[in-house]
């Protein structure tokens, strides 16, 4: 039996991912809420932009695509980790004898799958609503590669921050406040590449390659930071810290 670290990591990731998916298949909560939200956003975009002429939809379609991915991604991540927080499963998972990296991979994988399901609605929707999106039908392989790479980059960062927010136990900050500024590079690369796809730009493969490289960087940083961010404060210390913070706040109000 092989006990090499990468093999073990892969096996544990797959196991965790399978349990995530099994849980999801039981009630389909994430998939249903996220796809519904995608449809709502699509409908709103249709109502807002249906009157645009073709030459104006050309620069608009990439924006609509990736804005929707950003919105849906935030909703999915928030909901996914809210569930963890409610059942306190994340803490249990972190205490279990599994590689922390495997938790990251599994979480990112399941979120990516949900996002891809949404994109399976979103991309055809945009393609049929806006004439410029016709290219999505004509070049399905390139479109699929683009969507997968873009969503992967987004999820690589999003999982880290959503997990950090859920595991922190502090105030529930808005995920979007943190996530949108940090995800701008991925979204901009995705925008550029989508634009290249719509323009029939011959450099498209090179753009896709750059997106893949970016994804590798982001996954690397995310994997590197996942453990230190999540497994930071020991419970005893954080109780003292909470006390300290409360007292500091009280003192701050006392002093003029």
């Amino acid at each position: 039996m092989l006990h090499l670290a990468p093999v073990r990591l892969l096996r544990q990731s797959l196991l965790l991912l399978r349990s995530e998916l099994r849980q999801e298949l039981r009630d389909l909560e994430l998939v249903l809420t996220s796809t519904f939200f995608t449809l709502v956003v699509l409908g709103m975009f249709y109502l807002s932009f249906a009157a645009l002429e073709k030459k104006h939809t050309l620069p608009a379609v990439p924006g609509l695509l990736w804005l929707t991915v950003a919105f849906v991604g935030t909703i999915t991540l928030t909901r996914a980790f809210d569930r963890e927080r409610e059942a306190d499963t994340l803490r249990a998972l972190l205490a279990a004898p599994v590689e922390r990296l495997a938790i990251y991979v599994a979480k990112a994988g399941s979120t990516l799958l949900v996002l891809l399901v949404c994109c399976a609605l979103l991309v055809p929707g945009l393609a049929s609503m806006f004439p410029a999106g016709q290219v999505f039908w004509d070049m399905p392989l390139e479109t699929a590669a683009l969507v997968v790479l873009g969503c992967l980059g987004y999820v690589a960062i999003g999982t880290l921050f959503a997990a950090g927010l859920a595991g922190g136990g502090g105030k529930n900050m808005l995920l979007a406040v943190i996530l949108y500024p940090v995800t701008t590079p991925v979204l901009m690369f995705a925008l550029v590449t989508t634009r290249a796809l719509l323009d029939n730009n011959p450099n498209l493969p090179s753009y896709l390659g750059q997106m893949a490289a970016l994804d590798v960087i982001l996954l690397g940083v995310g994997a590197l930071l996942f453990e230190p961010v999540l497994v930071g404060s020991a419970p005893a210390r954080s109780a003292a810290a909470a006390q300290r913070a409360a007292r500091a706040g009280a003192r701050r109000q006392e002093s003029p």
Partner: peptide, 28 residues
């Protein structure tokens, strides 16, 4: 606003901020 509990998360954000600079520049 995140108080003590989210300090580690904030640290991740700062690291990403630094990593992002060349990426954003290239993307733009």
């Amino acid at each position: 606003f995140g108080q003590h509990a989210s300090e580690r998360l904030a640290a991740a954000l700062a690291i990403f901020g630094a990593v992002n600079v060349p990426l954003i520049y290239y993307a733009v």
